[in-house]
Write a protein that binds this DNA or RNA. Structure first.
Lengths: 158, 158
DNA sequence: TACTACTTAGTAATCATTACTATGTCAATA
DNA sequence: TATTGACATAGTAATGATTACTAAGTAGTA
């Protein structure tokens, strides 16, 4: 029992469900965000899409990411260097941030029970209304560990 | 057995121990930071000291906070609004951040065991070199809860 | 007391982000 | 399938926090 119908991508469906208009730019941003584990910054999104959308404006990227965040499709995270990053995984989880290259990874799932406990205990032991929790580990990723050592030694010599 | 000696404040001692020169500006910044539980931003420090130091430059505040951080006397924290805050409590602990007024409090000490566990487990379950952890709870403080409700209702009506 | 390196103040530059506005386009309706 | 009104985009300008640069000043040591 097949019926002729046009194919609706998951991204398109998600946008419509959120009450947002579907445009080529938004679809492309959604697709990139959903497919990336790099927690892209607005600049990274812009740089990635610019070749396919020569007319793309950074402004559009900022606004779109903001709309998607408001719709609950993305989560904005902030880190030590004060540049925003966006995460298509909106479930609570912690991040690993490399202080040299800026890479952002998700932490191992093994931490999740602890994070849940922390959030519930945090909410329970304060009189504030808690809406969200953010947890970041800072250090050096495997690619930067060696370079970090070298830099530290140089500093010591000065 | 009293001896004549000039009085050395704790702040002065801390600066000398860290190998930093003691200047009036630095002493004042130290004193303010050590005495505050508000996790002041550079702008707050500047605003607080400007009356006493009319010639003070924002630049000096930025540089001094940075030096004190490098010396391990302060800890720089970053939050959702991408404005730096500094904390004279360098022991690991989490923060409560109000999304309306920007107030930053320390969390209840009851969370500390969990935070330690999180840090050690986080370090153990990744191959990265972990140097630090930051944990923030976002929500509304007691003073802003009501206003937050009002704002949300207004949004819904639009 | 004199010297040297570190600090400061002041200005200019940078960077990410937001504001503003005219043009363009999606999608609901007739 | 045309029309139309609201939303989206692009482009430029503005903002705000932070950093860079430089000349003048000062702390601490010999």
């Amino acid at each position: 029992m097949q019926r002729k119908q046009h194919v609706v991508s998951g991204e398109e469906q998600a946008l419509r469900l959120a009450g947002l208009r579907v445009t080529p730019q938004r679809l492309a941003i959604m697709r990139y965000m959903m497919g990336s584990k790099a927690h892209p910054s607005p600049e990274m999104v812009y740089g990635h899409l610019k070749p396919d959308f020569p007319g793309l404006s950074p402004n559009t990227v900022y606004q779109t990411l903001h709309s998607l965040e408001e719709a609950g499709l993305l989560r904005r995270i902030s880190m030590e260097d004060n540049v925003y990053r966006y995460d298509a995984n909106v479930e609570p989880h912690a991040h690993l941030v490399c202080r040299l290259c800026g890479r952002v990874d998700d932490t191992n799932g093994a931490l999740e029970p602890l994070l849940h406990e922390l959030l519930s205990k945090g909410s329970a032991t304060t009189s504030w209304d808690i809406l969200a929790m953010d947890c970041c580990f800072y250090g050096y990723c495997n690619d930067c560990r060696e370079r970090a050592q070298t830099l530290q030694n140089e500093e010591r010599e000065e």
